Computed example of a mutant assay.
Amino acid sequence: MPPSMPSPSIRIPVELLSQSSFAQFGTVIENPAHSTLPRSQRPPLLDTVSANQGTAVKILDVTRMTDLYHLAPSTKPAKAVMNMFVCAPRDLRPHEPSDSMPSSWGDIDFDEEDYEDGGSERQLFDVQILERHPFTTQTFIPMGLSQADKHTQYLVIVAPTLPASASRRHTGRPPPYPTPKIKKSRSIKDIFARARPSPFTNEKGPPPSQFIRSHPSQRPKGPGLPDLKNLRAFVATGNQAVTYGAGTWHAPMAVIGDRPIDFVVVQFANGVSDEDVQEVILKPAPSAEEGMVVSVDSDRSGRVLVKAGVGSVKAKL
């Protein structure tokens, strides 16, 4: 049984998935030419080269694959694995007024006038569990879903990681899966490496950590629990794949709409269960009406309406 943590009652609006808004959590993979953002808000173009005898454009380094299993307690090496997830649409519950706090990531309009005329509909998705893969990135690539598909999309729900000290305050016990402390080497070489100047490099001190210059999504997240007060929800179109950074807390894939989506999922794994995946169940207070809830607004066609983040409020995808 996965460990649990107390969950506040918060309603989270849906944001448009873009590389700029998702950068702290991982990578969005999409053809820049198909971006729904205004040109002024699009990220810089990635490097490209001509390929396939001039019939294709190759876009380089569209995502960051990270293998941190050398930091795992077992030190068991991992291998790259590719699986397929066939994800059925989730059941959403009808909207009802609530005393839940609005998310800090965007105001939710609680005015019911927009829904009384039948112009749009609001439904609710309860986030009951979060998971992470502490030593590997995980990339979800949807298959057979068009960008223009109005009736099926998927939600990407993520949360930052709390410091370990804050995690103890939340649960009254150490974090559920502490990351091992790296043992300090006491070899003669290590002792001399800390000398000034170092005999092994041209620098005045030991080389910096390999993670200092890494993108934030590539750095180890530490053993902390998810920061639920800063949980965010993004809606993705069919031409977008997503890579969760190593150790990023996220909800299991949530498809919304009419039909399942097939995802090809690429990650590293070493077969040690709590090193490959770690889960936390979110437990609302007994007196609370609800816990963490994503508010999903849609138009008559079923297409999700964006309520927060980049782009105009209530803009259609």
Rank of each mutant, 00 (worst) to 15 (best):
M1A: 14
P3M: 11
S4H: 00
M5F: 06
S7L: 02
P13W: 00
S18F: 06
S20P: 00
S20Y: 06
S20K: 13
Q24H: 11
F25V: 06
F25S: 06
G26N: 09
I29V: 15
A33W: 05
H34P: 00
P38F: 12
S40D: 14
Q41S: 15
R42M: 08
P43D: 13
P43Q: 10
P43T: 13
L45W: 03
S50E: 08
T55I: 05
K58I: 00
L60C: 13
V62Y: 05
T63W: 12
R64F: 07
D67I: 06
S74A: 08
S74P: 07
T75Q: 15
T75L: 12
K76D: 03
K79Q: 10
A80P: 10
M82V: 15
M82L: 14
M82D: 07
M84D: 09
M84R: 09
C87R: 03
C87P: 01
R90Y: 01
L92S: 01
R93P: 01
R93K: 02
P94M: 04
E96N: 08
D99S: 14
P102Y: 05
S104H: 10
D107N: 13
D107P: 10
I108D: 01
F110C: 08
F110H: 13
E113K: 15
E113Y: 12
Y115R: 14
E121Y: 10
Q128A: 11
I129M: 04
E131D: 05
P134Y: 03
F135Y: 12
M143A: 12
G144A: 11
G144Q: 09
S146W: 02
Q147V: 05
A148H: 13
D149H: 09
K150F: 11
H151S: 15
Q153E: 09
Q153S: 14
Y154E: 12
L155E: 08
I157W: 11
V158H: 07
A159W: 07
P163Y: 05
A164Y: 09
T171E: 03
G172F: 06
G172C: 00
R173A: 02
R173S: 12
P180W: 00
K181C: 01
K181H: 08
K184Y: 11
S185D: 13
I188W: 12
D190A: 15
F192E: 12
A193R: 14
A195V: 01
P197A: 13
S198H: 11
S198C: 12
S198F: 00
N202D: 15
E203I: 09
K204V: 08
G205V: 04
P206Q: 13
P207G: 13
I212G: 00
H215S: 15
P216C: 10
S217F: 09
Q218D: 14
P223A: 07
G224Q: 10
D227Q: 07
N230D: 05
F234P: 05
A236Q: 01
A236K: 03
T237L: 15
G238S: 03
Q240T: 03
A241T: 01
A254H: 04
A254R: 07
I256S: 05
I256K: 07
D258S: 12
D258T: 14
R259D: 11
P260K: 04
P260L: 04
I261C: 05
F263R: 00
A269T: 00
S273D: 12
L282M: 06
K283W: 06
K283M: 09
A285Y: 05
S298C: 08
R300Y: 01
R303T: 09
V304E: 06
S312N: 07
K316V: 14
L317M: 14
L317P: 01
